[in-house]
Amino acid sequence: MSDLTLTPNIPGADDFYAELIAAHEGLTDAESQAFNARLVLLLANHIGDRTVISQALAAAARKE
């Protein structure tokens, strides 16, 4: 099983971030929250690996 990648892994980091911010443009706060929830579920499904997802949940909770 692989581990959660915590080193830079997205080529063109600034392009990615700009696209992410642009995706929220014009949304209300509630719509943005819903958008982020859908995004999390999509990305989690793409990862698939339950160990990696658990590691990501822990990292986001800022637990070592």
Partner: peptide
Amino acid sequence: DLAEQYEFARPL
């Protein structure tokens, strides 16, 4: 927040 601990967030 993440950049402090995780290298991946630093380029952002």
